[in-house]
Design a protein around this nucleic acid. Structure first.
Length: 194
DNA sequence: AGCAAGATTAGC
DNA sequence: CTAATCTTGCTA
């Protein structure tokens, strides 16, 4: 199976629209001879200045620069001092919105993903969380600001998703009620709610 | 300058 | 249930 990067128009539209469009798409990372492919099964939208739970709520900082940059680029942050998470920036330059990738279903290179996770995780535990998928896909903070239409790390269009479920986001205390979490109904790799 | 909370995870 | 551990914003 051959995977091709999406073009820039994939990232146009509202952030919620992009979040839904990312479901069923593939995150691809080509490392040397190996190709790691994960199907995106769970995402969350973060709406910048309109969203108290967003890192970008209070404006731009050194950390959040990529969120305010052009759409389709990687915003990476360190969560709780120990886990990195990957976001896709949305909206035009100057608007701090984006989509957090929360869970993947391993499609290719599952063995290597398990190895990236320390060899101790199996099955859904390989990539059913934002910090887990980041580690499994072999991403590093060096990809901060990376254009996700370019090798070696990119988004590739997937098949239409059967059914999308919308609900409140996970692990936040502000704007809890907003329906900004999207996931593929019934997919076992979706992270478990608290 | 110091402190608490946070888009999480693994281990007891 | 709790520790680990870095960034940011708020208080003094």
């Amino acid at each position: 199976m051959k995977y091709l990067p999406v073009d820039k128009s994939f990232f146009e539209g509202t952030t919620s629209q992009l979040a839904c469009r990312l479901l069923g798409s593939y995150l691809v990372h080509e490392i040397g001879q190996a190709t790691l492919v994960g199907r995106i099964v769970e995402v969350e939208a973060y709406l910048g200045s309109a969203d108290p739970a967003a890192h970008t709520y209070r404006g731009m900082t050194e950390r959040t620069l990529a969120m305010f940059g052009p759409p389709g680029h990687a915003y990476i942050y360190l969560s709780y001092g120990s886990h990195f998470c990957l976001n896709v920036s949305a909206r035009p330059v100057g608007v701090g919105e984006g989509v957090l990738l929360r869970a993947l279903e391993p499609i290719e290179g599952t063995e290597l993903m398990a190895a990236n996770r320390g060899g101790k995780a199996e099955g859904v535990l390989i990539s059913n969380g934002p910090g887990k998928l980041f580690q499994a896909m072999g991403v590093t903070k060096d990809f901060y600001g990376h254009d996700l239409t370019q090798l070696p790390l990119y988004i590739s269009k997937g098949e239409e998703v059967e059914e999308v479920v919308v609900g409140p986001r996970i692990g936040i205390s502000k704007a809890k009620d907003l329906p900004l979490r999207f996931y593929i109904k019934g997919n076992p790799f979706v992270s478990r709610a608290r």
